[in-house]
Computed example of a mutant assay.
Amino acid sequence: MDPDKVLIAGGGIGGLAAALALAQKGIPSLVLEKASKLGEIGAGIQLGPNAFHCFDRLGVGESARGMAVYIDSLRLMDAIADGEITHIDLGDKFRARFGNPYAVVHRGDLHGVLLKACQDHSLIDLRTQAQVDGYDQDGKGVAARLGTGETVRGRALIGADGLWSLVRRQVVGDIPPRVSGHTTYRSVIPLEQMPEDLRWNAATLWAGPKCHIVHYPLSGWKVFNLVVTYHNHAPEPVAGKPVPVEEVRKGFTHVCERAQNIIRHGKDWHMWVLCDRDPIDQWVDGRVALLGDAAHPMMQYMAQGACMAMEDAVCLADSLSSYESLETGLTAYKDRRVQRTARVQLMSRAMGDHVYHPDGPRAALRNTLMNAKSQDQWLDTLDWLYGGNGLD
């Protein structure tokens, strides 16, 4: 094994982005993925302008733009009163302000673009059935211990192995993730089955008491992505469990008929109980560093999980190429990222409480405050997230 390679635990969006970012700086890497096949589960994800900044830095800008659906607005609906609370126009003014568009993509399509770019790059090796269980290190490198009993050596190890990261367990030694009690159900609806009066070119959120519904078009308008979430105080993590539509509908009997009708059209529902962690600044242990959900797992409510992982990847490569000392480079990477990702983690929780799920007077206050904002004020509100490139 080439000891000059950076080892990357995890072949998801964050891990592949890290490999591509390093390759852009001339740094070779080996991606170690525990699954037998490289791929992504799930359906749609939203990509803000900061994601497109990253695509360009990763060398996949053209491919990424080609697979995206460019929506016209972010639309917030009242799931009880059945009316629009507010919207954010994503047209020319938004793009001019932030330098890139807002789009939605199928998670598998995005992963596929990153995977092909990795497969085509001579500085990137990919290996499956290679779970990283832990590591040992000295002043010259890192030895990743695999589940097979094998040891793989490299110059550094990046833990991009997700919410349940085994690399993080050794770096941080912390407790399991926080179970939010929010249960998300996902489905994909063929275009012709989506109610005709809701076929909006928008990322639409129906906000209701202890629940919300999100839908938007995907895959060249062939399907609609449907994600519904119910704050049902679920006590334990669950990931990808199939459930009948009757179970999904239980959490939405109190919302308006039009919102309920969306759920009736869903098929092949799967559920996840959402988890996150409190922000930390302990991302680095010598030649080992964390990235993406391994470093800062967050709730879905700001649609920034994949975007933050890709920003991490670009900043990691920038930092490693800027310092002679690898350890110094990893620390600089962490210092550049901790506050920004902590802000997104905490604001994602707050969005769930104060925008997505409030009821009574709290919901009325939300509606009043959000409806009062002009489009220019919305752009100002989003400037901290999209205004820079997120990589400085």
Rank of each mutant, 00 (worst) to 15 (best):
R95A: 10
L58S: 07
R97W: 02
C307D: 03
D2Y: 09
V284I: 11
Y323E: 15
W206S: 02
G220N: 15
Q260Y: 08
Q137N: 10
P279E: 08
A96Q: 11
W164G: 02
G220I: 04
Y301F: 15
M271I: 05
L163H: 07
A23H: 03
A207S: 13
T368S: 14
S348G: 09
D161A: 11
K37I: 12
P358W: 04
Y386L: 06
G91I: 00
G240R: 08
M67Q: 11
K210C: 08
E236D: 15
R168L: 07
R343T: 12
E40F: 06
R287W: 04
A96G: 04
G139L: 12
L205H: 11
M298C: 03
F252C: 01
W378E: 00
L365I: 03
Y230G: 02
D89F: 02
T368M: 13
L191D: 14
Y102D: 00
V60G: 02
Q129R: 15
R65N: 14
K241W: 07
G159A: 05
T381F: 13
D136Y: 08
A64K: 04
T183N: 00
A21C: 07
S165P: 03
D4Y: 12
L166D: 10
G390C: 10
V273W: 06
L191I: 14
E236P: 00
H53S: 12
